[in-house]
Design a protein around this nucleic acid. Structure first.
Lengths: 346, 346
DNA sequence: GATTGGCAGTCTCGATCCGCGAGTGCTAAC
DNA sequence: GTTAGCACTCGCGGATCGAGACTGCCAATC
């Protein structure tokens, strides 16, 4: 990714100016505008020569012959890697985020929904939030509640007080007393293990009677598969914001994007690949594997709920976005979310 | 609502033909087309006279002087009240719905999500589903799980095996043993009551020690307010379908609609007003109080989870929709959802 | 050798115009 | 009450055109 920088200082400044101006105005940037607004010492002719070079090396493009220049995906990439200036979120934004999180319900789901809402609001893009990844988190508590004679509610409390629930159907009637006994046994044997570890150790858990053993197998199976399912859940919010961007006046683009958002699985795959230790990850235009995202950029990072329990949060918007600002705001909301989640239990 | 029908038989047939043709083609319907396709015995001139009358009485309108006619909201209303023919869902559709529900997860949320998905798919509109209304449903079981010394997970199992959960924060540390004792006591006193009844009977529940009493007050309070919050949740799916309708090529319309969908509260109010005993309720264009819905129609009905536990399900689409078909399919999915939910516990 | 002014050339965009076709309303005849 | 005929209206799509924005190139200049 870190290609050598073949751009001299002036070309860098011109590229930066083109990206900045285009991001704000949405109009292709011409040599005269650049000379007047950003490079008073230079003539428009000089800038034209530089622009031609930047087109030649693939950092800029022209929509048509007699138009100004706009950045290519490669141009945006160079910008975010080398030219983008660190931007801090404004006090107003910080205050908004703080207030919103204070009014959030004190549950994981509620907090994540609030995070999606506030992030889409302050970035004016679509926000994405995945549920926390729990496969490596340790089990704190298991509870079994009898609903009907043959159906049982499993309640699983994980590190960070993340609560999972599922109903399972049993082959034979089981009383609440039996279930409570099983729950106590499971709590004893299972506490502190991760779900991954758990599924490998079925043998060591077996109670004496074969029928109970079958039941417990069913329970464990449903716990682990349950988690696999939930990983794919992606919250999103703020599609209405996208409609205001001029790049989506033609609804065709939007249709592919909505399909990705509503279907979710493909996005989940992308979001799961975000690395925990990286600060903020930016994926630009055709760097995306999905066709529906080839004119969109993703700005993603992770939030932390407890050790090893993390999720992904970020936004999706047109490639023409104010990256510096969006990065700052994604980072802000990620930190705020982590903070609120960390204090959930206290 | 039931106004006298000032339309003679032939005008009714013409109105019906206009609505039918327009819903299929999307083009204003002219007198010649009507004469050729629907009224071979009549001349176009005769139909022109009738059309002029229907415009005069407000059932039809012309987009411009030299165009055909399209229905007004009033025309659609007359159509769905008196002219619409009962349509049964096709075997293909029935099979699709059946298969989809068979692959649904066995939880209330999962089933409702599946209902939203399949309904939007088969109607090619946006589907709406509210969570079941539980204020009148009886409590089956209460469980209290200690998460941290001062925070408790309340699990509430209602009729129909509807599971609600919430975390509450306590003023002082409480052990799992104390919580279990309280849960047993609550189960004894509370079982079979509705949440509404419960909140009125705090006095009769009081244990001996004042501190325990305070804790239980907190629990009950959070149970009842929790439910009020959850009522406003509205699932939706299928926005991508809407983008294919020609009436949404201008994104302005869509923006208002997306705002309603993503915000949810206003829609929730509308959906809660759907009456349980009515079959299918249709709200057309400006009959909606919301401005964003003035060019949309809602086709709504209720599903049943258990006695007194019901929710609303339906679709939202352009006023130009195939009402007969949509009504049949909304009804189909509503019944399928009710069936699956009723058998959840077994 | 880099920079610049000048200039012809290219292309988009919006306005205008025009003819076609669809559909109407009216009138007079049936 | 119904119908044929006819003049009229209006939207739509295509063609045309000029303005404006920018470029690329060239020759002069620093």
């Amino acid at each position: 990714m870190l290609e050598p920088t073949p751009l001299d200082e002036r070309k860098q400044q011109i590229l930066k100016a083109v990206v900045s101006d285009y991001t704000v105005t949405g109009m292709p940037v011409g040599s005269q505008v650049l000379a007047a607004k950003y490079f008073i010492a230079l003539s428009s002719a000089t800038i034209r020569n530089e622009l031609a070079d930047l087109v030649g090396t693939g950092y800029l493009q022209q929509p048509h012959t007699s138009a100004g220049r706009i950045p290519t995906d490669r141009g945006y990439r160079y910008f975010v890697d080398f030219l983008m200036e660190a931007e801090a979120a404004s006090p107003t934004i910080r205050r908004t985020v703080k207030q919103e999180f204070e009014s959030a319900p004190r549950s994981v789901d509620g907090i994540l929904e609030k995070a999606a809402m506030v992030l889409s609001h302050i970035t004016e893009n679509v926000s994405l939030v995945t549920a926390p990844e729990v496969s490596e988190s340790r089990i704190k508590h298991i509870d079994l509640v009898s609903l009907e004679p043959q159906s049982v509610l499993i309640i699983l409390v994980l590190e960070g007080n993340l609560i999972k629930q599922q109903v399972v159907h049993l082959e034979r009637a089981t009383t609440q007393e039996d279930l409570s006994r099983m729950a106590a046994m499971l709590n004893h044997k299972v506490k502190g293990q991760t779900a991954d570890e758990l599924s490998g150790r079925l043998d060591q858990l077996g109670p004496d009677r074969a029928e109970q053993r079958r039941i417990i197998e069913r329970l464990i199976e449903s716990i682990t598969t349950h988690q696999a399912q939930r990983q794919t859940v992606v919250l999103h919010d703020g599609v209405r914001n996208l409609l205001r961007h001029p790049e989506f006046v033609e609804v065709g683009r939007l249709e592919e994007l909505m399909e990705l958002l509503e279907q979710g699985a493909q996005l989940a795959t992308i979001l799961q690949q975000v690395e925990f230790d990286k600060d903020v990850e930016i994926i630009i235009g055709r760097e995306n594997t999905s066709n529906g995202l080839r004119e969109c950029s993703l700005v993603l990072t992770t939030y932390k709920m407890a050790d090893r329990i993390r999720g992904t949060i970020g936004v999706i918007g047109p490639t023409r976005m104010h990256y510096g600002q969006v990065v700052a705001r994604v980072r802000l909301v990620s930190h705020a979310t982590s903070d609120v989640l960390a204090h959930l239990g206290n």
